[in-house]
Structure formats: structure tokens, C-alpha cells
């Protein structure tokens, strides 16, 4: 464990807690894409299949449970909570996320480190995580009004993967034979997808104006 990875995990944890806090306190999911949340639940479900078989550390198991629990409860809130669901804008959140799931599954079947069910599922979760934010970014472009919590949520989500890239660089130089091209490339693609959001986020923060994404 290194500081970059720990900071990345804490940033990732903060992003889901910000989202849960928003939904739980103001009972609203305005501006949040259910599609992205469903994709994230699928990412965690397919990545943490080894939850009960491989014990790595208490920290690892605990964080997996938190991420699984939070992502599924966010999906539950937006889908079924009688108050929260009313603020879900399904007419705007129309990204056909099946168009993301299938290509990621096919790619995972073609490009993976080992052709076993667990490994293909793990690779699928990596590819899917890289593109899972797209419905959310599309929704932000459409609705234009980004409230602070949603902006913070997306920012933290992007920052966590950027910290993970530093972690991979650190591990590459400190651990012999630590090479995971698939992880590195999908993590890089994921971070690049946030690049323009980061740009506008910093612009709005620097000029102290409300965050607006260009149409």
C-alpha cells in the first residue's frame, strides 16, 4: 500500500459518501445519472467476485463491502425510494448504457490476462469502469445546472483514478515485475474522459463562478 493508492481509495470513498449524503439528506437525486450508478454497481459486482474467496487484508475486504453497499444502495434510492425517485430525470438520463456493457464484455473476452471466468469478469469491470461516467457527463452537459454536490462527486470520482495512476507509476518503479497494461490503459482512458470536466471545474473554481459545461 502506498500513499497514492490510499489517497485514491479515500477520494473514491469520499465520492460515494458525498453522493449518499446528498441523496439521503436532501432526498433528491437531481442531476445524478441512474445509468452511471447502475454501471458502477455492476463494476463492483464483477470486480469483487473474490470477496469471499481471497482474503487480502481487512482494509481490502472492508472497502469492498463499503463500495458494494454504497453503490447498490444509491441505485436502490434512485429507483425505489418514494421521495428520491421523484427527482430522477429519466427523460434526460437516456444514455443507452447497454451500448457500453456489451463492447466492454466483448473486449474483456478478447483482451485479458488469463482466460478464466473470474479474470474476464475482473477485466470487464475495468473496461466498464473506464466508461461508466459517460451517462453522467452527458446528463451534466444536458441539464447544464451542476449543483455543488454533483460537481464535487464527479470531481472526486475523476481524482481517485488520477491518484491510482500515480500509484501504478510508483509500484512500477518499486516492485519488480509489477506490470498490468490492461489496468493502466483503462485507468488512463478513464481519467482522460474526465479531463474536460476537470478543465471547466477548475475554471469555475478559479473565477469563482457557477460550474457551467459548454453545450
Amino acid at each position: 500500500m502506498n500513499i497514492f493508492r490510499f489517497a485514491g481509495d479515500m477520494t473514491h470513498l469520499a465520492s460515494v459518501l458525498v453522493l449518499l449524503l446528498k441523496i439521503h439528506t436532501i432526498k433528491s437525486c437531481a442531476g445524478i445519472s441512474l445509468k452511471t450508478q447502475e454501471l458502477y454497481a455492476l463494476v463492483f459486482a464483477t470486480r469483487y467476485l473474490d470477496l469471499f474467496t481471497d482474503y487480502i487484508s481487512l482494509y481490502n475486504t472492508l472497502m469492498k463491502l463499503i463500495f458494494l453497499g454504497s453503490s447498490f444502495s444509491i441505485v436502490w434510492y434512485i429507483r425505489y425510494h418514494k421521495i428520491v425517485r421523484r427527482s430522477y430525470d429519466k427523460d434526460q438520463d437516456t444514455f443507452r448504457h447497454y451500448f457500453l456493457v456489451l463492447p466492454c464484455l466483448l473486449l474483456a473476452l478478447l483482451i485479458n490476462e488469463k482466460f478464466t471466468f473470474r479474470e474476464v469478469m475482473w477485466t470487464f469491470s475495468l473496461y466498464l469502469e473506464a466508461v461508466a461516467i459517460l451517462p453522467q457527463l452527458v446528463l451534466l452537459q444536458r441539464t447544464r445546472n451542476i449543483d455543488n454536490l454533483t460537481g464535487q462527486y464527479v470531481f472526486l470520482l475523476g481524482a481517485y483514478r488520477a491518484l491510482y495512476i500515480l500509484n501504478w507509476i510508483y509500484r512500477y518503479f518499486t516492485e519488480p515485475h509489477y506490470v498490468h497494461w490492461i489496468t493502466w490503459i483503462s485507468g488512463l482512458v478513464q481519467t482522460l474522459l474526465y479531463a474536460d470536466f476537470f478543465y471547466y471545474y477548475f475554471q469555475s473554481w478559479k473565477n469563482n463562478v457557477k460550474l457551467e459545461l459548454p453545450a
Binding site: D9, D54, Y55, N60, F67, W122, N167
Partner: peptide, 10 residues
């Protein structure tokens, strides 16, 4: 012994 799977990251 802890099985150190190659995927020790979250």
C-alpha cells in the same frame, strides 16, 4: 498464508 491474488487493488 494469504493468497496474494494479482489483484490486490480495489
Amino acid at each position: 498464508t494469504q493468497k496474494r491474488s494479482s489483484h490486490d487493488e480495489l
